[in-house]
Design a protein around this nucleic acid. Structure first.
Lengths: 259, 259
DNA sequence: CGGATCTTTGACTACGTTCAATTATTGTGG
DNA sequence: CCACAATAATTGAACGTAGTCAAAGATCCG
């Protein structure tokens, strides 16, 4: 799991999970790459349980996550908590810092989390100086938006069973984009309580749902890994269509406009 | 309700709901304003029920909504539908068109909807040519993101009663930013079925929830208007904090960087 | 006026929650 | 290396919020 971000996974670029992800949708020149690399100069580590950003507080730094699992969440006064989404290697936090002073959500590290930090205001300048990188970042933002959208559908209209299965597939696919998952399994270093707070369910019910998934021969958890036993059926049951996660090449018109 | 976008509401700018909203967070020069105005040259009208964008199809046009209610939604195969969010005057649709070819969600007009349309690729160029406008648009994107985030919390962790009340307050506040709501009431031209699909509830339950809200003297619907009878209590019950909707001035550092 | 759509209510059902207790599993210090 | 504490997973039983089904009013509109 712990990965050296200088070691390429499979012949792709050796610049860490963010560039690995971006290289699939847009071709960056050396100048542009180093433009992005400028955001990679600082490294910070957060310990499990530590807050990376806090709802309502000023966003001092933005982050590019390299390793570990974090999550974006909100809470209600009586303690109910909702996780919007997990933050995985290659994901960014706090990018609105230059524009929307206060954080709308909290972000916390669940495992030990390693990330690069930078001044969110730099991002604004980067959009001006390096439009192609701006487009790449916008693509990421759009993708996050699509993920959020699936999250609303999941929590709002899917049953507990569908919900759980669908999230598993989303995580599988997201992790595969950075080389952090095998074809049918991945490391899931989180508790059922986190899962519950992400799925809008109680811990007890998550547990029962996972059991049903296991009993049906669809997927099971073993030693902090999730193993998918019947991928096809899981896809069918959850109506999973990974299109929203996939990198598409940019429209040619845009590529021209940028060169 | 139907409003002439040349007629200022209250001494603010007379350039339609988008500029009215933006003028609260960022000062735009004449050059910048006309930069934005370039997106306002075409006008389209959609009839009730008509699709503005369709999930999975290419995004041909982006839109700035001037008037009417639309909604972004997704459906499951058996007909379950989840509304991500309502699209109100001053909101944009299809802005990722230049970057993410296919639409991740559908957008449909509920009332008659009037909007300006433009080529989403123009938006990319605009970011390069007119950074201040880029920042303004990014602010809008960030705000949408925050709204989505609240939607996840609402649907995932709030009770039906809290959910319904919270959405009412969100709509009230959003509409007030464009002058489309009074201080404690607004035109709600939608059916309970739409509300249900937004709240992740059944129509029947929405109906019962609205009744409870009415019986408790908190809010009631009359002639397609929602009237809030006890604003303070509604805010308390729903733990509503409108911060995520409010325009904040940009950090001074950013303002400098842009001039 | 008549048909269609929307709202409202009742009765019953069920999915998921809560409470409570038991059984792993993990981590820590002696 | 084990004992103990703490955390996490698992299961049962009872409950409750919200869903489904069905039917009766309202309202809208041509």
């Amino acid at each position: 799991m712990a990965e050296d971000d200088r070691a390429p996974h499979d012949g792709s670029q050796a610049h860490g999970p963010l560039l690995r992800k971006l290289s699939r949708i847009i071709e960056l020149s050396n100048a542009e790459t180093s433009c992005l690399q400028a955001l990679h100069s600082n490294t910070v580590t957060f310990e499990p349980g530590q807050d990376i950003l806090e709802e309502g507080r000023k966003i001092e730094q933005a982050y590019i996550q390299i390793d570990g699992w974090a999550y974006r969440y909100k809470t209600l006064l009586d303690g109910r908590r909702q996780i919007m989404n997990f933050v995985l290697p290659g994901d960014m936090s706090g990018i609105y810092g230059g524009i929307r002073v206060e954080a709308d959500e909290s972000v916390a590290a669940h495992t030990r989390v390693k990330c690069h930090s930078f001044d969110p205001v730099d991002l604004i300048e980067l959009f001006g100086n390096c439009p192609k990188v701006g487009v790449a970042i916008s693509w990421l933002v759009g993708r996050q938006d699509a993920i959020m959208s699936e999250q609303v559908l999941r929590v709002g209209r899917r049953t507990a069973y569908e919900r759980t299965g669908h999230l598993i597939l989303e995580l599988l696919n997201r992790l595969r984009h950075t080389g952090d998952a095998e074809s049918r399994s991945f490391e899931l270093p989180i508790t059922q309580e986190l899962l519950a707070d992400c799925l809008g369910l109680s811990v007890v019910h998550v547990n029962r749902t996972l059991r049903k998934l296991r009993e049906n021969g669809i997927a099971h958890v073993k030693e902090n890994r999730i193993l998918i036993d019947d991928l096809e059926r899981l896809i069918n049951v959850t109506e999973f269509d990974g299109g929203y996660l996939e990198p598409h090449k940019l429209p040619p018109k845009v590529d021209q406009a940028l060169n």
